[in-house]
Amino acid sequence: MGYMLGVFGVAIVVFASTNVDDIFVLLGFFADPKFRAKQVVIGQYLGIAVLYAVSVVASFLVLVIPATYIGLLGFAPIFFGLRRLWELWNGVETGDNPEDHEKASAGHSNIVAVTLVTIANGGDNISIYTPLFATRSAYEILAIGCIFAILAAAWLGAAHSLVNHPTLGAPIRRHGHRIVPFVLIALGILILYEAGTVGLFRG
């Protein structure tokens, strides 16, 4: 029991420390009327699942993915941020009309957007998860994955609660969707810079 509690503790610390900034990204998505809550949840889980799966495979193959190439994912949030800015500039908004909401929920583009941003924002997590998984048994890796799934739900719940808070919710919903494009663009630039991806183009 004590051993498994140690595994749980490690999983909680690792997930929390590598996903602190993700809560702000989720706030932006939940505050954006173009995104349905269901789309954000699905996209977030798909993104985390990809990060987890890649880390597991990398740990089995002892594969080290250069950070500079992982940093290329930074272009995803930049793209979605610029696209959202263009939509705001041209007055492309989703109001409270049910038909508009149906249009916003149609297709899978929003889910793809959340998934790619989640992967890009957590691209560096692979370098942390991989050595962790490499030193664990298959059973422990599975347990850690389950804990990650539970904590992802906690992250989503916290962000959704803040957006719908009686006091904080109104200003977040009113201005959040206007702020999120700049957050996404800044996030993408930061990912490219910290990963050293800029060096690929200089070379």
Rank of each mutant, 00 (worst) to 15 (best):
N19C: 02
V40S: 09
V41E: 11
F15P: 06
G43V: 08
I42W: 03
F79D: 01
V10I: 10
V64P: 04
G71I: 04
A49P: 11
V57F: 15
G6Y: 02
F60I: 15
V7C: 12
G95A: 04
A67Y: 10
R83D: 04
L61W: 03
A58V: 06
L46V: 14
N97Q: 07
P77Q: 00
D21L: 09
V13R: 05
Q39M: 07
V25M: 14
L61R: 08
V50M: 14
G47T: 07
G9S: 07
K34R: 14
P98K: 02
T68P: 15
F60C: 15
Q39C: 06
T18P: 14
G9I: 11
I78C: 02
V57W: 13
S55L: 12
A76K: 08
F80A: 01
G28N: 04
R36P: 10
A16R: 01
Y52C: 15
V20E: 00
K38E: 12
G95L: 03
V50E: 05
I23E: 03
A53P: 03
A37N: 12
P98N: 05
L5T: 01
T18I: 08
S17M: 11
V62Y: 02
V40E: 08
I12G: 07
V20K: 01
A16F: 14
L82T: 03
I65N: 01
S59M: 13
A11P: 04
L51Y: 09
A76L: 04
D32F: 03
V62L: 14
L88N: 01
T68F: 00
L27F: 04
G9Y: 00
F29Y: 13
G6E: 09
Y69Q: 14
S59W: 09
S59E: 05
D22R: 04
R36Q: 13
V54E: 09
A53Y: 10
A76W: 06
V7P: 09
F15E: 08
N19L: 00
S59D: 07
V64T: 11
A76E: 05
V92R: 06
P66I: 10
V10C: 04
G47Y: 04
R36Y: 11
Y69E: 14
V20I: 13
G91K: 04
L85Q: 02
L63D: 02
L82N: 03
V56I: 12
S55Q: 12
W89H: 08
T68G: 12
N90L: 03
V62A: 12
A37Y: 02
L72A: 06
V13N: 01
F60A: 15
V92N: 04
D32R: 08
R36W: 10
V10P: 02
P98W: 00
D32N: 14
S59I: 13
S17K: 12
W86N: 13
Q44A: 15
G81L: 03
